[in-house]
Design a protein around this nucleic acid. Structure first.
Lengths: 344, 344
DNA sequence: TTGTAGGCGTTATCAA
DNA sequence: TTGATAACGCCTACAA
């Protein structure tokens, strides 16, 4: 009783061939009613479950998709992953999850493993930097579809589901300007990453459009992690900006920790707009003005697209750009300014 | 060139048998230096990568572990998953991630799929309720190790890595009492879940020890989701408790939303202690007093234990109970009380 | 040390 | 409609 029943056991039990069993399991080619019932009975009796590993080997299809994110511990990604899992699930796929920590090395290892495990496709949030040639070669040979998530990387594929980061950043900075901020700083993600560049560009162009100076000193490149926000805060605040746009949540937390240490208050001492929104940001003070990104949708759309590719859709590459949404609350100091004007 | 090179291709290319190739790939039984080099050259030339699906079929080992959590979108789980992934990774395993939404049905489907995919073991945060007999039967037959995460379920296995929830809740409530709260309410998780029961018990016993009344009206059973915290808040606040212990973060957010709607302030109008801590709770107001749970460690220890089981360790069941840590901040109103006493 | 051949559990081709 | 039988790609006795 140690081994699980195989298709052979079922065949023997019901006195038919494995072909027939296989046919009823996958309800294929019309199997005679009598046989079908006998087989089904045997299946129940032996508690037979197809071995999907064997099936994968025969089919060359695992119904598994690999998903590589920088860090599932970064609160941005869980919802993206959840979205992807929901879509995958719906189409009968599973998710093999990997963390790259934005390291090219880990990313490469993860991809190699996923390829060896013969996943049907990969959802990738590309780490900063370029693939090494051997890996590119390998990927080309294997020829499974990739869909990029949140970050483009045209050298690999043009299929990507991202957010309109340029626009989001532009909105954020314009809003800061509308709130009366004049010296606006930026805590950016790693500029090698496509969306960080986009956000930087949005920041830059919005300043220009508002007639505000772009001060190199007020631009700090972080890595989307909390600590880098903290460090950025320390060096940024010494230059006394009156407004700051921070490119993600984790760095915002770090920045606010730095502000706290330096005795600076938001929005009194500096206005703040942050990227990605969370339920708790609406209730704690200061209420953060943020640019919300549709995380769950990002995941589902990416997975849907990937599955379409897996199942043979070879239509032209799609670059899906989801729209962010500015959520105005208090950290930008908009209310503050209104209050001051009332006094005058 | 459509197909990836197989072990046969390598064998042919280097003029040896598949056995020899297999041996050098897994650097097994001493292969003659000359042959080894020839084989290695062929491997590089053909860019050969072992097909892990085929290997799994032959070995009866997938080096994949299944992980089922209620919802990766609940901020509690990402770090647990990350911990598990780190440990898995370290030992050469991958994580197949599933969400159960605390639904028995989804949980069952997920387990069946994981078993069919022949994962080597499963990390499970059990959904509320009991397995149905056929599933239990199936699990017993397949005989792969399970390790429970965060929630016990002795009917399945006694291997579990959890937190000392009783103790954590006890501490939380005692602290509320020390802060001078007299009518303390509870927003609990689903009482069918082991840790919700533990937290309830800790709540109950702490009240008793402090000589405070246990008021049934002030105990509300939620489901660990935000909305249930919101509803709980609405019904709870109408009874005017002066202290509340909420059993997780998401429900706390919901509860605070309700408080806001009703114009109640924390800690002035009610003291609050919440479970699980996050970096942002230290910087926003009100600063939440929480009981931190070692999420990452939970994941790594669970994965380590599971892998030990997978690799044959049959020592007696381990119930690992990690210690929570009370982080006193301001939402309990402790500072408030101190301030009042000073005035007197 | 190396090769041969059979098995892992399915699917799929080709006859019957 | 069914049944043998050969893939799928790898591992591993058993032989040589």
């Amino acid at each position: 009783m140690g081994k699980a029943a195989s298709i052979y056991d079922v065949a023997r039990e019901s006195g038919v061939s494995v072909f027939t069993v296989s046919a009823v399991v996958n309800n294929k080619s019309h199997v005679g009613k009598g046989l079908r019932e006998r087989v089904e009975a045997a299946i129940r009796k032996l508690n037979y479950r197809p071995n999907l590993i064997a099936r994968s080997l025969a089919n060359q299809r695992t119904h598994t998709i690999g998903m590589i994110v920088p860090d599932i511990g970064n609160p941005f990604f869980p919802l993206v992953v959840r979205g992807a899992e929901d879509a995958a699930q719906k189409h009968g796929y599973n998710l093999l999850l990997c963390n790259s920590d934005d390291s090219l090395d880990k990313e490469e290892k993860a991809i190699e493993l996923l390829l060896s495990k013969r996943v049907d496709g990969i959802l990738l949030t590309k780490a900063a930097g370029d693939f090494r040639p051997p890996l590119r070669q390998m990927i080309k040979e294997v020829d499974i579809p990739f869909v990029l998530v949140m970050r483009t990387y045209p050298k690999l594929t043009k299929d990507a589901v991202i957010t309109d980061d340029y626009h989001g950043a532009y909105e954020a900075v314009s809003h800061l300007a509308r709130a009366g901020r004049k010296r606006i700083g930026l805590v950016s993600g790693p500029l090698k990453v496509s969306n960080a560049k986009e956000r930087w560009q949005g920041f830059h162009d919005a300043l220009k459009a508002e007639g505000l100076p772009y001060e190199q000193d007020l631009v700090i490149e972080g890595d989307y992690r909390l600590e880098s926000g903290f460090r950025a805060g320390h060096s940024l605040f010494s230059r006394r900006p009156d407004g700051i746009y921070v490119a993600n949540h984790l760095m915002t937390i770090g920045l606010l920790q730095a502000a706290e240490e330096m005795g600076l208050r938001c929005p009194e001492d500096f206005g703040l707009v942050s990227f990605d929104d969370y339920p708790w940001l609406g209730i704690f003070r200061p209420r953060l003005t943020t640019v919300e990104l549709p995380k769950h949708q990002l995941g589902t759309e990416a997975a849907e697209l990937l599955i379409k590719r897996i199942t043979g859709d070879a239509s032209k590459p799609v670059l899906r750009k989801l729209q962010p949404e500015l959520r105005i609350r208090e950290s930008c100091g908009f209310g503050l300014r209104a209050a001051e004007e009332e006094k005058e």
